[in-house]
């Protein structure tokens, strides 16, 4: 009897919660991360704009983040419903290609221009952001002007960073320090450690601590201040410009080998680097557009830090060394 109750409950829960799927002639399924398709994200506007041009239905499936996106694709394998995966970053590309699930797009993607001139036969960038230390101008009068100054600075001024074991910004900081310090990275971490208030599992936790005033600096993006300027009309939070240059995160999308609607998928990838898509990115995803927009960006974006140099490690190099570098980081950060 208990099992009957169980199955009834399970079935009831399943039916009451899953929306009925409407059948239309053509549906393009795009896997992405959750914040992309949330009410405030670019998803809803994008869907509207693309459906106007394609006479099709655009179906978004959102998972937690870019890493979860790749995991989901691995789990689903060749039978995945996804036509497009949107939201991987350059660090994941090598691993994504190794799954053999993606197919070269065969398009002219010259419209997409990102610092460091990244281009790829399989993945097309749709936006990018430079990592940066964002600080509270009310708490910090003299922000660090370089990564070295951050590392050697006053340990009483704290920063919240993300964990490279569980988050992509965390991995970004790891690679940035590695790019600047090379073999000296463990020593740099040992010094920086004294300024680190805490290491959070993801960006949201660290940024939450920051906006609550608990910590005056946080590891985020050069574009973060744009949100506060545009949406909250405040210039209180600013990004620090580092003289060595900034590490970049490029977000890309690619087409799957098993895509049922390949023409539609290619059409979407082209749409992705067109102004209709790019116009929406800055003020919804709070990243820099990867291609031309139809109008100039809001003023706030002109006041952001413009890195003079961009760091980006090859995806293969990252894949090969990630574990070793994380181990190195763990050791440097755990010494008492």
């Amino acid at each position: 009897m208990r099992s009957t109750i169980l199955s009834i409950l399970a079935a009831a829960a399943a039916f009451s919660l899953s929306a009925p799927a409407e059948a239309q002639e053509k549906t393009l399924t795009v896997y992405t991360y959750e914040s992309f398709i949330s009410d405030w994200g670019p998803g809803p506007k994008m869907k509207e704009a693309f459906e106007k041009t394609c006479a099709c239905k655009l179906n978004f499936v959102g998972v937690a983040d870019g890493v979860a996106l790749l995991t989901r694709l691995k789990l689903e394998g060749k039978g995945t419903d996804a036509d497009i995966a949107l939201g991987l970053d350059t660090n994941l590309i090598s691993e994504a290609k190794a799954t053999g699930l993606f197919e070269p797009h065969g398009l002219d993607a010259a419209a997409a221009k990102v610092p460091g001139n990244y281009s790829d036969d399989t993945f097309i960038p749709y936006d990018y952001g430079h990592f940066a230390v964002v600080y509270d101008t009310q708490a910090i009068k003299n922000p660090p002007k370089s990564l070295k100054e951050l590392v050697d600075g006053d340990p009483a001024q704290k920063i919240a960073i993300e964990d490279p074991r569980t988050s992509t910004p965390g991995l970004g900081l790891l690679l940035w320090v590695k790019s600047v310090y090379g073999d000296q990275a463990p020593e740099a971490w040992a010094k920086l450690r004294k300024r680190v208030l805490t290491v959070t599992p993801g960006w949201s936790e660290a940024y939450g601590l920051f906006t609550k005033g608990e910590v005056p600096m946080v590891f985020s993006y050069t574009t973060s201040p744009a949100y506060h300027m545009v949406e909250e009309k405040t210039e209180r939070y600013q990004a620090a410009s580092f003289s060595e240059g900034h590490y970049i995160q490029i977000e890309v999308a690619g087409m799957l080998k098993g895509a049922k609607e390949k023409d539609l998928a290619k059409q979407f990838l082209k749409f992705m680097v067109s102004p209709a898509f790019q116009d929406v990115i800055p003020t919804t995803n709070w990243m820099m557009p990867a291609a031309t927009t139809s109008q100039p960006l809001p003023d706030a974006f002109n006041n952001l830090v413009q890195p003079t140099k961009t760091f980006l490690m090859g995806s293969d190099q990252v894949a090969k060394n990630r574990q070793a570098w994380i181990d190195e980081w763990l050791t440097a950060m755990s010494i008492n």
Partner: peptide, 20 residues
């Protein structure tokens, strides 16, 4: 994580991850 299955804590996190 599918858009059909959004719970309250998930919504809290989702708002946090888009600056809200």
């Amino acid at each position: 994580g599918s858009s059909d299955l959004t719970t309250l804590p998930w919504l809290v996190y989702s708002r946090l991850s888009s600056y809200r």
